[in-house]
């Protein structure tokens, strides 16, 4: 056996195990999904080829339209504030010392809680009967607010819950980005007498541009797939006002057994997430000259 051949075999030996799992548990279902979406299929194995009918139905489904609107609204209410708050926090906490360390710990802490626990806690914060906020309002002589049953408040309520839960990861990413900015740039800027604002705008933000892009892309993709919070907090109510696309996929598949239709919606969501991710990437990087 020649050394070159042995190297090749070694290459496959190293990447093989992952590729095997990847092919079996990701690629195969991905292809299966596309095939299933072209069928009228139920959860228990019955299949009937119908071409693109499921997609046509999806485009004309008012419930899906509502879910789409809810999902986009949630993403809009979550991603920009999350990014801005995370950036501000990271800027403030990117310093040595006990105070900053403790606060970093506090702001990261909710990240480790599972969605069940987050919704459990927030249900009893938001509920108008005995919730934490209601108790506070009552103490102040005000009427409690029905966050989870008012169609206009339920999306913001889920957004706040999600913000509280998701803050830690972006802060962490941005902190990591900030720590990579070479210190001597700041020193040079200080020698030039640049103010804080100028430093932030001219040096810091451009330096962590890629990190911010990553945060926005990851969060957009994540929030477009919001599921647990809506299912556990409101079940999509009232009247579908907080039903997200993924919750709808869950209902259609396991509640109504319409696997083909559910899969078609999932494929549409997949397309939407890819398109958005690419768009964001393009928007941020198109002005970047190949600077090296």
């Amino acid at each position: 056996m020649t050394a070159a051949l042995r190297d090749r075999l070694a290459g496959y030996a190293f990447v093989g195990p992952f590729l095997l799992v990847y092919a079996a548990v990701l690629i195969v279902p991905l292809v299966m999904g596309i095939v299933i979406s072209l069928h009228r299929a139920d959860l228990f194995g019955r299949r009937e080829w119908i071409g693109l009918d499921n997609y046509a139905q999806a485009l004309g489904d008012p419930v899906l339209h509502q879910a789409f609107g809810n999902t986009v609204l949630l993403a809009v209410l979550i991603v920009p504030p999350l990014t801005v708050i995370a950036l501000l926090l990271a800027l403030a906490l990117n310093r040595p010392g006990k105070f900053a360390a403790v606060l970093r710990g506090v702001f990261f802490s909710s990240l480790v809680l599972s969605v069940t626990i987050v919704t459990l806690i927030w249900r009893f914060i938001l509920t108008p009967d005995a919730g934490l906020i209601a108790e506070g309002l009552e103490a102040a002589g005000r009427a409690p607010i029905p966050f989870l049953s008012d169609p206009d408040l339920v999306i913001p309520a889920i957004a706040v819950t999600t913000l509280w839960w998701s803050l830690g990861f972006p802060v962490m990413l941005i902190l990591a980005g900030l720590q990579q900015v070479p210190g001597d740039i700041y020193e040079a800027a200080a020698l030039d007498g640049a103010g804080r604002w100028t430093v932030l705008r001219r040096i810091t933000l451009p330096a962590i541009r890629r990190t911010l892009l990553l945060v926005v892309m990851l969060q957009t993709a994540a929030q477009l797939q919001l599921f647990g919070q809506a299912q556990l907090l409101t079940g999509g109510g009232p009247g579908g006002a907080s039903r997200t696309i993924v919750l709808y996929i869950f209902e259609v598949s396991f509640g109504r057994w319409e696997l083909g239709y559910a899969t078609a919606i999932a494929e549409l969501l997949f397309g939407m997430i890819i398109a958005l991710t690419l768009l964001q990437y393009w928007l941020v990087t198109r002005h970047e000259e190949p600077r090296a």
């Binding site: 049953s149 169609p151 109510g237 009232p238 009247g239 006002a241």
Partner: peptide, 15 residues
Amino acid sequence: GLIGEELEAAITGAK
């Protein structure tokens, strides 16, 4: 589930 959702909307005045 479907009827309940629509009734909820009607009864709360959303529809």
